[in-house]
């Protein structure tokens, strides 16, 4: 037994040494008064490890750690089951708990709409902050002759629904709703092939296993830069994107109306029934994250739209978006 302990201990000591090399653990950073977390904060992620939502949440966690915006660490926990249903239920059951927050995406509305049995009303959660809105573009492979939306519509029509494969994330999720918008607007039909994540979708386009995608900018940026893919139009209002992504025409600019707009919200929320001071603490932390050079740089580089929202305004936004999604899901035949 002693020897077993010895071997475990020696490994632990070695591991501890490793940590010591890499982390000078300084946490004597005294914070301002008000509520402070008494233990590590759970940062629930509504998606699995490695996806876009996960990467973003870990990026935010990184910013908090780097600048010591909080006296206790934020620990990401993935609850991706059932398109976020698991995460929503988890948060509902933790009402009043001050040591848990969640990073959301659009399944925040669509999952409760599709599963009324969950008994989750998202307007009941405590709003913390909307950090940005992610955008969508229509992408094709750069080897094709398709250079404009017109070319695209012609190509889809001449190929026919059977031969035109649109890749995207799971059915009823963002990509499929955007695809539905596209089909309705241009009177086209495509074969929709669902994949597990946006990154895989991007790769499938480059490997020519599918004909087009509606990826987020961050998913296609690398391939675009390498000249492998081509954006045709952006599902944003004009003038909202800057830099490289600002040069992509929007559907509105191309004269297809102002309704061809869709966003993925990136927000932080807390369970229902937490104290005002607790809410204020989290709003303060994320305000600092939002204003950090890292976050502002990320938004610009990855084609997100900045848009800080908090308090009642954020709840109102959630309610408005939920109703919009109710309409979209009905139009797509996903709910009655």
């Amino acid at each position: 037994m002693n020897r077993y302990l010895l071997s475990v201990l020696s490994i632990s000591v070695a591991a501890g040494f490793g940590l010591a090399v890499s982390v000078p653990m300084v946490s004597n950073h005294a914070m301002a008064q008000g509520w402070q977390p008494k233990k590590p904060v759970e940062l629930v992620i509504m998606a699995g490890k490695g996806g876009g939502a996960d990467r973003l949440a870990r990026f935010i966690q990184g910013i908090i750690e780097k600048h010591k915006f909080a006296s206790k660490p934020f620990v990401p926990i993935n609850k991706g089951g059932g398109s976020g249903a698991e995460a929503l239920r988890y948060l509902k059951d933790r009402a009043g708990d001050p040591h848990i927050i969640m990073a959301t995406l659009n399944s925040y509305y669509t999952t409760p709409l599709r599963n009324p049995g969950l008994g989750v009303d998202v307007s009941k959660f405590t709003p913390i902050a909307r950090m940005a809105e992610d955008t969508f573009q229509l992408w094709v492979h750069s080897d094709t002759n398709i250079k404009t939306v017109d070319d695209y519509v012609k190509a889809v029509k001449s190929a026919g629904a059977v031969n035109w494969k649109m890749g995207g994330t799971g059915k009823g999720q963002e990509d499929s709703l955007v695809t539905r918008m596209l089909e309705k607007k241009f009177g086209i039909k495509v074969t929709y092939v669902p994949y597990k994540g946006g990154g895989t979708v991007a790769k499938e386009l480059i490997g020519k296993h599918i004909n087009s995608t509606v990826n987020n900018p961050s998913e296609q940026a690398g391939f675009w830069e390498a000249g492998k893919s081509r954006p045709l139009a952006s599902f944003t209002p004009k003038g909202k994107l800057s830099g490289r992504f600002g040069k992509i025409p929007t559907f509105e600019e191309l004269g297809y109306g102002s309704d061809m707009v869709y966003y993925m919200q990136r927000s932080i929320i807390a369970p229902a029934g937490i104290d005002r001071e607790v809410q204020a603490f989290y709003v303060g932390v994320f305000d600092k994250v939002y204003k950090s050079a890292e976050w502002q740089g990320y938004i610009k580089k990855k084609g997100l739209i900045p848009g800080w929202l908090t308090g009642q305004a954020l709840t109102d936004y959630f309610i408005a978006e939920r109703e919009a999604h109710r309409g979209l899901l009905k139009a797509a035949g996903e709910i009655k």
Partner: peptide
């Protein structure tokens, strides 16, 4: 590697063909 990929983004590197 999915988590490592997240790391590359945090470090400001653009994973991809380039």
């Amino acid at each position: 590697t999915a988590v490592l990929l997240g790391g590359m983004v945090i470090w400001g590197l653009e994973p991809g063909p380039l």
